[in-house]
Each structure stands twice: as C-alpha cells, then as structure tokens.
C-alpha cells in the first residue's frame, strides 16, 4: 500500500442515479450495485437477465447506454467467469459496467451480437480466451488463436510456461 501523503482521498460517494435508473427500467431484475475506483456504476445481474438488460440499454432511449466501450471476461476461478460489458451514454456522459457470471461447470452466457454488431469480435475473443460459450453467436470461431486451438490461455488454470520450456530446453 502506498504512503498516505502520495494519495488522495478514495473516490467519494457518487450519486449519478444510474443504478436507480436501471431498477426503474427493469423492476423485475435484481441488480447488485457497486462503484469502481473512478466512481462509475457497476451493476451485477443474473445470467438469465443479462441479455435482456443489455438489449434494453441499446434500444431503450430512456436508458440510452447505446455505445459499447468494452466487453471482456475476468477469471474468478472457483466462481466461474465474469463477463463485463462497459457501456456509455453519449448524451449524459454516464458510464456503467454490467457484469454477469457464468459458472465454471456450465459456462455460457447469451450472446448480444445478434442485436449489437460491435460485440461480435469481443465475444469471439472472450470465448476463445476463457471458454465462455456465447449462446446464439452467429460466428463462434476462434479469432486471435489458431482455429484448432482448444485451450483457453487467459484462464488462471493456464499459467505462463517457463521461458526455457517455451523456447526449447536443449537450445543451449
């Protein structure tokens, strides 16, 4: 931990009304709200509601979170894979991160590519890197990795190989 003198006070409580806005728009969905270090809202939703909420973000003008900044996975090890969607509302300049968890033994989430073309490559990359199946994705091929590669390199279960091993031990 850094010295106190070099640090500012931790980001103060922000009230941008984003969690309340989502709760009003989706009264039947349970949101777990949080804030990141920049004070932006994080909303965790159940996997069965995620695609519906994201469709609402894109198509409901009262929400207006129609710009997908980023989509990625995070390995939570025993809990499974967390899929994070970073969204932006360009008019109000508000950010929100929608999160959903796919359990490790039943690793899938619904694809948003059918209605959100910008998610296409991001979902393909998350699929190959973490092994999350994006159900309903129109083109679930490997993107960055070899076509026939079946391991998922960004999982913590796949640590980096020793550099000697990687280059071939008998080089020297």
């Amino acid at each position: 931990m850094a010295e106190e003198s070099a640090q500012s006070s931790p980001s103060a409580e922000v009230d941008d009304g984003v969690p309340e806005l989502f709760q009003r728009s989706f009264p039947d969905v349970t949101f777990q709200a949080g804030r990141n270090a920049a004070g932006q809202a994080i909303l965790s939703v159940d996997r069965k509601d995620a695609a519906r909420v994201l469709r609402g973000c894109k198509e409901d003008p009262s929400l207006g979170f129609d710009y997908l900044r980023n989509l990625c996975g995070v390995d939570l090890e025993a809990q499974g894979i967390e899929v994070v969607y970073h969204l932006l509302n360009m008019r109000t300049k508000q950010n929100v991160a929608i999160k959903t968890v796919a359990p490790a033994d039943d690793c899938w989430v619904e694809a948003i590519t059918p209605f959100w073309p910008g998610a296409n490559w991001h979902e393909r990359e998350t699929r190959e890197m973490f092994g999350v199946e994006f159900v309903g994705h129109p083109d679930p091929r490997n993107l960055l990795l070899d076509e026939d590669m079946t391991i998922h390199p960004l999982l913590k279960a796949h640590p980096l190989a020793d550099i000697e091993l990687f280059q071939g031990v008998d080089v020297f």
Binding site: M1, A2, E3, A6, N36, A37, A38, R69, N70, H86
Partner: peptide, 19 residues
C-alpha cells in the same frame, strides 16, 4: 513524481476502466 512513492507498487483491490 509524488513524494514517497513506494519502490514496489502494490495497489488495493478494486477495478477501473480508463479510456
């Protein structure tokens, strides 16, 4: 540089997206 930066940086748990 801020005064008293630690030599080995350890950051507290958390997350942030910075564009």
């Amino acid at each position: 540089m801020p005064e008293k930066m630690p030599r080995m940086l350890r950051l507290p748990a958390g997350e942030v997206y910075v564009p």
